[in-house]
């Protein structure tokens, strides 16, 4: 199991990897430690999500990538 990500540190533009392998880019961060707003870049399980902006739950974020 990967280390938990402190999502309060995630700045807009940061790319993250989600459970299931999808990737997303942070759009905004309300700093509540529970949710971030992110745009889906890839989504192997559900291609319809690509390009959509959704609230992403902290526990779904498994890895932090580079800022775009």
């Amino acid at each position: 199991m990967s280390e938990p990500v402190n999502i309060r540190l995630l700045q807009p533009g940061t790319r993250v990897v989600l459970e299931g392998g999808a990737t997303a880019e942070i759009v905004s961060n309300p700093q509540d430690g529970v949710w971030v707003f992110a745009r889906f870049l890839t989504s192997p399980d559900d291609p319809d999500r690509i390009g959509s902006e959704e609230m992403v739950f902290a526990q779904e974020i498994v890895e932090v990538g580079e800022a775009s």
Binding site: S28, P30, D32, G33, V34, W35, M55, F57, A58, Q59
Partner: peptide, 25 residues
């Protein structure tokens, strides 16, 4: 000031208009 009110217990999250906008899983 906040965009959302997030419950710290299970993470349900509400917009400032009161709508439930975030439900984990």
């Amino acid at each position: 000031n906040t965009p959302v009110f997030t419950c710290p217990y299970h993470g349900w999250s509400y917009g400032t208009d009161g709508q439930l906008v975030g439900v984990p899983y």
